[in-house]
Each structure stands twice: as C-alpha cells, then as structure tokens.
C-alpha cells in the first residue's frame, strides 16, 4: 500500500450499459485524497451512483482504472478485494438495510463479522453510541420496515460508520431529511471523518452543505468530471453548467 497515493483514484473510466445508450462514464478522472471530504455533485442520472459502485468494485469499468490506496481493483483477487473493502463504510442511495434484522442487529452486523474480539456488551455499547450520534436511540429495537425514509438513511449511516472506516462513502446521505436533521448528519459525517483523519466521498444535491463541509467539490456531467475545486473556487467558477447549478440553488 502506497501511503502517498490517493484514497480512491479513477483514471479514464468508461462504462456503458447498453450499446443503444450513451456511455454513463466516458473517461472519468477523479482523485479522492487521503483525509479529505470530497463531495460529488451532478444532475440526476449522470452516473454518480455508478461512479461510487466502481470505487467499491461492485461494477467493473469497460476501460480505465480504479484504484484504492494505490492498488488497482481489477487486479485484486477475491481475498484481496475483501481486504480492500474493509477500508470502506458505505451508505447506499437506497440504504439497503437488511430487512430481516432489527436496527440494532443491522448496526451490530459488521461488528459481529469483523470484530470477533468484541464482547456482546461492547457491541451493544458501540451500537448505542452510534444511534445516539444519528439521534435514533429510541429506534433501537425497530425493524427497518417500521422506519421512515430519513430514519433508514440515518441507521444506514450508523451501520456504515460502525467499523470506523478509512473511507466513508455516502450516496445522498441527507436527501429526504428535514434541514435541521440534515445539518446534524452533515456535521456528524464531517466530525467523524476529521476525528480519525479518514476520507469521505459524498454524493449530494445539497450544494450549501457541500460548500460548508467539503474540502473539494467535483461535478460530473456527461460521464466526465467538469470541475474539481475547493468550495471557494467552486463558487467562483464561470463554467456555464456550474453557474446554472449554483444559481438555481441560490448560491450566487
């Protein structure tokens, strides 16, 4: 593992699902540096979720490379791929809670799998601590189907953070939350990432939150990254599409 390498790096990634449609990713280049909070924005259906799935090795690029801490995913064997994934905590856009398990068991799941040394009491302690952070301590015994969309998101985030991942990936963590809870969640992601000097790769539509917590912001359009900038630089961008995005959000 190369310590100076980016946490995640995309090099010329192409991905096309069917021949009669334009490619979703068309030569995407992007670096998520170690220790940074990187927010990816873009219009609906432009391939943000697809980009994330490439970082996790859930999708394979048609061409181009995706590397995590300097090792290319396509070259890893099954065992190495599992090792690589131990770096990640992931909140899916659809959350993907295990619907046969309670909130408690969902969050305890990664701990039970990968922290065999933890006692039942330590696990309970950690789960309660996480639920407190996402302000859901009352929902601990509920089943996923009894939760609202926003509550599911927060449980999903707690599950993603359970193992204190080196890279936290969240696909729209605050979509569907009220502004107050959204801010709590953004702050939580920021704090827990900075605390352990981890990296975070977030997909968001909330440009205000992005400007507040991100180190860098990227925008995807037609399968490419059209801009990667610090929040200040992003606000000053003269790119017409970025301007359009900023204007409609009332930033400029």
């Amino acid at each position: 593992m190369n310590s100076s390498a980016a946490a995640i790096s995309f090099r010329g990634v192409h991905k096309q699902f069917s021949l009669d449609q334009a490619p979703v990713l068309a030569g995407l280049d992007l670096d998520i540096k170690q220790g940074e909070i990187h927010v990816l924005i873009g219009f609906s259906g432009t391939g943000k979720s697809v980009t994330i799935k490439h970082a996790l090795g859930l999708m394979k690029p048609d061409s181009g490379q995706v590397s995590v801490f300097g090792s290319e995913i396509a070259e890893l064997n099954d065992y190495q791929l599992r090792e690589m994934r131990m770096n990640f905590g992931m909140l899916f856009q659809g959350v993907a809670l295990f619907d046969s398990l309670s909130v408690y068991e969902n969050i305890a799941f990664p701990l039970r799998e990968h922290r065999k040394e933890m006692s039942e009491q330590e696990i309970r302690h950690r789960v309660e601590e996480l639920l407190l952070k996402v302000e859901l301590e009352k929902a601990i015994q509920k089943m996923p189907e009894e939760l609202s969309g926003g509550m599911k998101k927060r449980v999903g985030l707690a599950r993603a953070m359970a193992l204190k991942p080196k890279i936290l990936i969240c696909d729209e963590p605050t979509t569907g939350l009220d502004p107050v809870t959204a801010q709590v969640i953004d702050t939580l992601i920021e704090k827990s990432t900075r605390e352990v000097n981890a990296s975070a790769f977030l997909v968001s539509h909330d440009i205000h939150a992005a400007i507040r917590i991100a180190d860098r912001i990227s925008m995807i359009l037609e399968g490419k990254i059209i801009i990667t900038e610090s929040p200040e630089g992003f606000k000053r961008s003269q790119h017409p599409v970025v301007l359009q995005f900023l204007e409609s959000a009332g930033v400029v």
């Binding site: 996790l56 859930l58 992931m90 899916f92 993907a96 799941f109």
Partner: peptide, 10 residues
Amino acid sequence: EQIDALEVMA
C-alpha cells in the same frame, strides 16, 4: 442492494 451491501462489508 442488500447483496451489494454484504459484498461491501467484505
């Protein structure tokens, strides 16, 4: 995506 979630959890 629960199967993807399993995979991501290694």
